[in-house]
Design a protein around this nucleic acid. Structure first.
Lengths: 158, 158
DNA sequence: TTCATAAATGTATATTTATTCTTTTGGATT
DNA sequence: AATCCAAAAGAATAAATATACATTTATGAA
């Protein structure tokens, strides 16, 4: 179903760009995006995405996507895992302030950073790569959602 | 307190050797080991250990310890700090904004970053290493003191 | 199309987990 | 030992989450 898949995508987007501490809260965020659903359905969605509720600091919870299913679209037949997709080594992306941290499989970071650099995205000021980590410095006034969107051309499986 | 600490150890042992799907079930296992406690206390214990409830297969849950569960509140002196202390090459740490910069002896940075990565601290969203420098991106709303505290498990001599 | 079947969802509720409030316990200090 | 304080724990309950059941909606085969 189409609605469900785009909703799952929305959930992934939200969970990787902001701190969500309850299903109720996530439900509100989804409502802002125009998704109308009940807690029961959300519970099922989170279950399917294998989202876990973690403890950030004592008394403070955060829903997190599992490391390797982070940002993978689940309609795998509509998007077969192409060479490009498998080749980029992308694992996850997280944000803090104006920095994004991308984790990759070992040794993939340099190549991925190279490709991102080549795109000359105005939203990304610069990149630096280690062995399995790429850091992106994000331009001022650029939202995380925008960063994710522009990165899609380099990381389809984001 | 002695009882509590040994109980936390027992929980760690149980969770890493068998599949536990609810607090109720864990409570029973603990009872077999002679630990008498209520669900409320267990909930607090799991909270402190940062245990998460994951989905194994649809409908089947499992409580899991964080990958590196040497999370300590204040009993860091109970751990022997000999081996790593000499080996990690740590020299200094400085902060700017949400970035921490660690200086190490030449060639130690990669290994140190690797160990920090493996801990999956929620407070540190990513690291990147050169030859004698590690940069850490710190999660939003995390204080420098907290960063120092969690790093103690990797860098006892911090 | 029409029927059959599966997937998705809502409602209501069961189940599970977190927390408030209170009491107890364990150390430290005098 | 007596006192104080903080950590720990229980009981009860609130809050959060999962699920059984019923209904609707999509999907596919004939």
């Amino acid at each position: 179903m189409k609605i469900k898949n785009s909703r799952l995508d929305a959930i992934r987007l939200i969970l990787s760009t902001q701190d969500i501490s309850s299903q109720e809260e996530l439900l509100n965020e989804l409502a802002k995006e125009g998704f109308k659903l009940t807690q029961a359905t959300l519970s099922r969605d989170l279950h399917q995405l294998r989202v876990v509720k973690t403890v950030r600091t004592p008394g403070q919870y955060k829903y997190e996507l599992p490391r390797n299913s982070q940002y993978r679209t689940n309609d795998s037949e509509s998007r077969p895992l192409t060479t490009q997709q498998e080749a980029n080594g992308f694992l996850s992306i997280k944000f803090s302030g104006n920095i994004a941290v991308i984790r990759t499989k070992p040794s993939y970071a340099g190549t991925l950073a190279y490709h991102i650099d080549n795109c000359d995205f105005p939203e990304i000021i610069g990149t630096i790569a280690g062995d399995d980590t790429v850091m992106l410095i994000i331009a001022e006034d650029t939202t995380r959602g925008t960063v994710l969107r522009v990165l899609r051309s380099v990381i389809p499986n984001i």
